[in-house]
């Protein structure tokens, strides 16, 4: 499945294969800190059973999904929409072998597990907040 990227950051109109270039790619935030992996994508609704009339607008990526979306992608099923952890496509600034965001990961929903583990466990162990060495 190919799709035109939207909204258009610098490389507008480049053709990407969602399967090959987006899915399972590492997502880095604006400071190059890993946030997550692209577990799935959320597209504008297309009815998979209906025939698509020619000339209708192509589906557009709304957001990158993570969290429970990985489980359902592996084992099947579909999580309820409110349980999806989304990174809005508008936050994406670049797509290459990694996907870069234009925002810090600190405030993204996708970072809550990292923040929870950090604040509840790791930062409480002495030395957890210091540079190594």
């Amino acid at each position: 499945m190919t799709l035109n990227r939207k909204p258009p950051p610098p490389a507008a109109g480049r053709i990407l294969d969602a399967q090959l270039h987006l899915m399972d790619r590492q997502v880095l935030d604006v400071d190059a800190v890993p946030v997550t992996t692209v577990d799935d994508l959320e597209l504008t609704d297309v009815d998979p059973n209906a025939e698509i009339p020619p000339g209708s607008p192509a589906p557009v990526i709304i957001s990158l999904l993570t969290g429970p979306a990985l489980g359902t992608r592996i084992f099947g099923g579909r999580p309820p929409s409110r349980r999806l952890v989304r990174i809005p496509w508008t936050d994406v600034s670049d797509v290459s072998v990694v996907i870069r965001l234009g925002v810090s990961g600190e405030h993204l929903d996708a970072g809550w597990v990292q923040r929870w583990v950090r604040d509840k466990i790791i930062a409480r162990i002495p030395g957890g907040d210091h540079d190594p060495g």
Partner: peptide, 16 residues
Amino acid sequence: FGWSWGKFRRPAQAAR
């Protein structure tokens, strides 16, 4: 899983 990792980071920055 795409977590942040590495010994070059502070443990808190690679908590998981």
